[in-house]
Design a binder for these strands. Structure first.
Lengths: 255, 255
DNA sequence: CAATAGATGTCGTTC
DNA sequence: GAACGACGTCTATTG
């Protein structure tokens, strides 16, 4: 770990390039201009920001607000630092798509590099996949007599989350949404049902499953003879109990 | 600006809470456990990460890889630091939707806070809006005789990027994509065309405008009697010249 | 590599 | 606040 407060451009340059060589994470804080050309193009005039350069090539420029970086380059890019006439240049590029990002620091408050040890991965519950699992294991939640047959069933125009048959042998194409279903979800379902019913040459019902749905999405759904089934969100509450109790991390009890 | 290397939990707690009071940005680097419950739920076992707390309430937890934070809370959340039995707790919450994020630091490499002065906003070119502008100002790029009439025209099921009429008086609903058009864009256009042609009681052609299109999207488009018009990407190259020449920032000449 | 769809998406805009 | 669509979306997954 190296931490320099109010470093010279020269010292910061050395720190950054050493961090890149050693696969460390770099943080720079200071006043900078940012230019980007690639899939689009942008200019950000001078102001004070936080810049993070990750060993995988990711470069993030953060302002004081918002979750999103104001500028960035994604993983896989190549970065280097050098001295320009006006300050420290941080340049990040990639081919395919060709993109170039330049951060020109006019002054620096902080330059720091860290070696981070982290083997762990996120364990997440409450995704769409979890919702599909619930329905697959308890098909009556969709409808009495529903028999699930195939997940991620391919059609010419995309894949159906869950395919099965109802008690009468009609096909059932089911699209799941983990949050409130919107127009786009209805269009998606419609696309699958049209292709599949034509190809199979039999009636295929289309079911949209979500905890809620917007009113115009419901209207479009009904106009198209599709159906809506309400299923509550995946059991995050169960999960919450797991996090707070079974994992039993002290200090998390109030969480 | 305050920068503490290997701070005590107590000192870090004071730094964080002072930064929150003073609307400063906080950076913490160290080994931590992260738990989240809200729209979904997650557990991230102990590992070394970078945590950024912005004065607008944004909280980001970054690992060594990827552009995306492994955990976060969006703008508008309330955060505070306190001492727990096992270390420094950073807690961020919001109502509506209810979400809670806890970062429990077991050790700290760095705690720092910054006041950042930044009035500037990003100037971006190459968005979909720019592409629509190009077509609006030069309608023959779509088709000889095309007359643009209305932008963001409302339908019952979403809004059309650009509406107009062709030389024969047929309606034209045009959907633009700044990048490669995919199945979803075709479905979107189809949805608009179906609603509008029915409501207006006349033929409405649907045109998808994009620099490129996937093969199955094109197939679906043609099955549905819709049309594809290729228009190259917005003039980023012109922009590039602006950035590098007219702005004339020294140090950017090689950019 | 292309294509497809999910995401704790986030963000702007409009109603 | 709800709804809708763009995003330099990013990311995982599959062919």
């Amino acid at each position: 770990m190296r931490v320099l407060t109010k470093p010279s451009f020269e010292d910061a340059k050395e720190l950054v390039n050493a961090a890149i060589r050693n696969k460390q994470l770099t943080m720079l804080v200071g006043s900078c201009v940012v230019n980007y050309v690639g899939r689009a193009g942008s200019v950000l005039p001078e102001g004070e920001r936080v810049v993070m350069l990750k060993p995988d090539g990711t470069l993030l420029v953060h302002q004081m607000k918002k979750r999103e970086p104001v500028n960035w380059n994604p993983p896989g890019c190549e970065a280097s630092a050098r001295l320009g006439e006006e300050g420290l240049q941080l340049i990040s590029t990639r081919e395919r798509p060709k993109e170039k990002l330049l951060v020109l620091f006019r002054s620096l408050k902080l330059a720091a590099s860290f070696e981070l040890v982290d083997q762990e991965e996120l364990y997440l519950v409450g995704s769409e996949r979890d919702l599909i699992n619930v329905a697959f294991n308890e098909p009556s939640l969709i409808e009495p007599g529903f028999k699930p047959l195939e997940r991620e069933k391919q059609t010419k125009y995309g894949m159906i989350d869950l395919y099965g048959v109802d008690r009468d042998g009609n096909g059932m194409a089911i699209e799941f949404k983990r949050g409130r279903a919107e127009l786009a979800g209805v269009s998606q379902l419609k696309r699958y049902v049209e292709e599949l019913s034509e190809r199979l040459g039999k009636r295929v019902r289309g079911i949209l499953v979500a905890p809620s749905i917007t009113s115009s999405a419901l209207k479009l759904l009904r106009e198209t003879q599709l159906e809506y089934v309400q299923i509550g969100r995946p059991p995050i509450y169960t999960f919450e109990r797991v996090v707070t109790r079974e994992r039993g991390q002290k200090g998390l009890s109030e969480f």
